[in-house]
Structures are given as structure tokens and as C-alpha cells.
Amino acid sequence: MREYLLLLLSTALVNNVVLVKFLGLCPFMGISKKVDTAVSMGLATTFVMTMASASCWLLEHWLLAPLGMLYLRILVYILVIAAVVQFTEMVVRKSNPALYQVLGIYLPLITTNCAVLGIPLLTTQENLPFAHSLLYGFGSAVGFSMVLALFAGLRERLAIAQVPAAFAGAPVGFITASLLALAFMGFAGLV
């Protein structure tokens, strides 16, 4: 139990996927203008990342390794991720059309979110057992969602703050992101 908790803490905070590993920066900058959409995007990505970690583990150990097709790993992973994203898109479209409109192109773009492919590849590299892979994916996704929501909150404040003209818009967003990354460095050594 303690081991699982530490794994969650390590993936969500200490090795945060966005601010420490710098994966998945596209939605991090793109969809963080409002907290509600950021949280929804985080939920969708969490679902995709957890499912992708689990199914990639299964494919790796039951299909690719026994048949000696490890060279096809990235191809198979992408195939599975694309299918999961498609499924998520259908669910969101059915259950919440307004959210579907707001997320727009970023929803199918979860497919190309490098964090979603990166996490299964990392768990494969570290040779984790199934439960650990699942938790690793889930923890990373929770970290991603949390950072996305935090950053969206910061940007909502920034939108009404007085920013020097040269920094208005994206530049001050990038500066904020770098400060946030520095703050997350403080978690190093926690686990």
C-alpha cells in the first residue's frame, strides 16, 4: 500500500510529467485559458492516459514480447492510443456537446500528446509490473490535470492583471510556466 502511494506521489508531484519531464506542453499552453475547460481536458487526458498505460502493458507482455515483435512497439502503442482517444471523443461528444465545442481540436490532439505515448514507453523501459504501470499512468495523468488546472487559474488572474505590453499574452504565460516548473523542483527528494 505504502509503495503504491509513494508511486502516485512520485509520478504526480516529484516527476511531474509537464513541469519536470516537459512532456505534453501543447495542451498545457493551449487549453489553459479557463479553469473549467482545463479540468475537463485533464479528465479526458486522465482517462486516455490510464487506459493507454494499461492496454499498452497488456499488449507489450502478451503480444509483442511472446511473438518477438518488440520493434513494432511504437506503432502498436500509437494504434491503441488513437483508438482510446477516438472512443473518448465519442463519449464526450455524446455526453457533453458544449464541452466538445470548447475543447475543439485539442480533443483529437490528445493522440499526439507526447505525454500519452511517453508514459507507456517509460513504464516499459522501467519494466514495471501491471499494477505499477497502471498507477504510473494514472499518477502522471493526475499530475498533468493538476498542473493544467493550476496553470489555468494563474492565467485567469493574469488576464486581468496589468502586464507590460511587450509581455502581454503568450510570453507572460511562458514566464509563469517556467516559474511554476521552478516551484515544482522543490518536490525533488520528497520520495
Binding site: 511473438l67 515483435m69 502498436v76 494504434l79 483508438a83
Partner: peptide
């Protein structure tokens, strides 16, 4: 084997979707 299993995987995912 690779062609067959990947086709099977793609087909299964396609059917599911």
C-alpha cells in the same frame, strides 16, 4: 505473424470503434 497480429489488432479496434 506480425502482419497477421497487427491486422487482427487493428480490425478488432476498428470493430469496437
Amino acid at each position: 505473424i506480425a502482419i497477421f497480429s497487427l491486422t487482427l489488432l487493428g480490425g478488432a479496434l476498428g470493430l469496437f470503434l
